[in-house]
Simulated scan of single mutants.
Amino acid sequence: MAGRERTPRLLAHAALILGVAILVLPVYLAFIASTHGGADFLSGRVGLLPGPLLVENYGAVLFAGASTAGIPPVALMLLNSFVMAMAIALGKIAISLLSAFAVTYFRFPFRVAAFWIIFVTLMLPVEVRILPTFQVVASLSMLNSYWGLTVPLIASATATFLFRQVFMTVPDELTEAALMDGATPLRFFWSVLLPLSRTNIAALFVILFIYGWNQYLWPLLVTTDTGYYTIVMGIQRLARAASEADPVWHLVMATAILAMLPPVLVIALMQRLFVSGLTETQK
């Protein structure tokens, strides 16, 4: 009996190990390639062990960049991407919390219509409204700035909908008790709703941070100054330089590895809250 029970467990573990290997192997090969020279990468002499140029290659992309490709240091691009991702995530959460609070607890004309107008914007992603949005940003002199990178991407109908659904599950007795205790609407929002939404906020923060970090098309349009390049733009420009016979594929791989680290770190640090926000309701 014990052997029969162990067999499905071993098969499950084998399947998990195989899946992890399939996912991790390309990342490992990219890391190995980033520790060799460009000529070794093109000639296929990379192998499966780290090369001797680990410190040199990562130091070059972090602090020197690739002057032949017009790429600034990756450290600056990492900072720009971090600022953009944090501003988008925090801005979306803040605006969505307030808008969901308004349409859930306040009674005003066309309240339901206002919510559905917000919800309908889900069908209008940035790519659809990119030309008028760019024109507005340009007319407000927000090109080549953090404002231009973040403000047009802050509004989120998805987060508003999710927080509205969370607020609708709060018992009416809790709301009435807060009113009887003399709590103002903002005090009720700050002291009751925010603590109850903690895990949902954490889950959305992880998703929205990665969304902001991976933005490519919008930063490509609103930035021409290399001082505002994001890490995803840097990878694209390095890859284009490599395709033009400049052997910088090892620098492309190093930049890609560095671009993975902040999202992975965010997920690792907030894993427990992230899973709780997706699977539990702390009410």
Rank of each mutant, 00 (worst) to 15 (best):
F115D: 09
S243M: 12
L193G: 08
Y105C: 02
T35Y: 06
M84S: 11
Y105D: 00
R6C: 06
W190S: 14
P171M: 10
F82E: 06
E280Y: 05
Y211L: 07
L76H: 10
L53P: 11
V83F: 04
T121H: 05
P171L: 08
A60N: 14
I207A: 06
R129G: 04
L186K: 06
G212I: 00
L42I: 03
R187L: 13
I117D: 13
G19T: 09
G59H: 08
F188T: 08
S43M: 11
T133S: 08
V166S: 12
A183R: 15
L76G: 14
D246Y: 14
T175A: 15
I71G: 12
L97Q: 04
I235P: 05
T255G: 01
S43D: 15
S191V: 13
I93L: 03
M84P: 04
I207N: 05
L196M: 14
L194H: 01
A259D: 08
A85P: 04
A69V: 00
K92E: 12
V137G: 03
R45L: 11
Q165R: 11
L162P: 10
Y105F: 14
A241E: 07
R240H: 04
A113P: 02
W249K: 05
L149A: 09
F63G: 07
L140R: 06
G38T: 01
A183Q: 14
I201A: 02
F163P: 06
P171E: 11
E173N: 13
A114N: 14
T169A: 10
M180P: 00
V128S: 07
P52D: 12
I95L: 13
M142L: 13
L23R: 03
A242R: 03
V103C: 05
F108K: 03
V20I: 15
A242L: 03
P219T: 01
T226S: 11
R9V: 15
E127A: 08
L131R: 13
A159S: 06
P73Y: 03
S99Y: 07
L48I: 15
E5Q: 13
S197A: 15
P109K: 10
Y146P: 01
P263R: 00
A138H: 12
I267N: 13
L140H: 06
R4Y: 08
S276T: 10
W190G: 10
P52V: 07
A254H: 01
V248P: 02
S276C: 12
R237M: 12
V137Y: 09
L11D: 07
L273K: 14
H36A: 08
F115Q: 09
V74P: 09
V151A: 10
A157H: 00
E56H: 08
A256K: 06
I235K: 13
A138N: 13
L269V: 05
T158P: 04
S34C: 05
T184K: 09
V192I: 14
S81W: 00
I201Q: 03
T35K: 11
L196G: 04
R107C: 04
N57S: 04
P109V: 05
I154C: 04
M77F: 07
F106P: 05
F110M: 12
T158Q: 12
Y228M: 02
K92F: 05
G3I: 10
R9A: 15
K283D: 15
W116T: 07
S43R: 15
A268E: 14
E244Y: 12
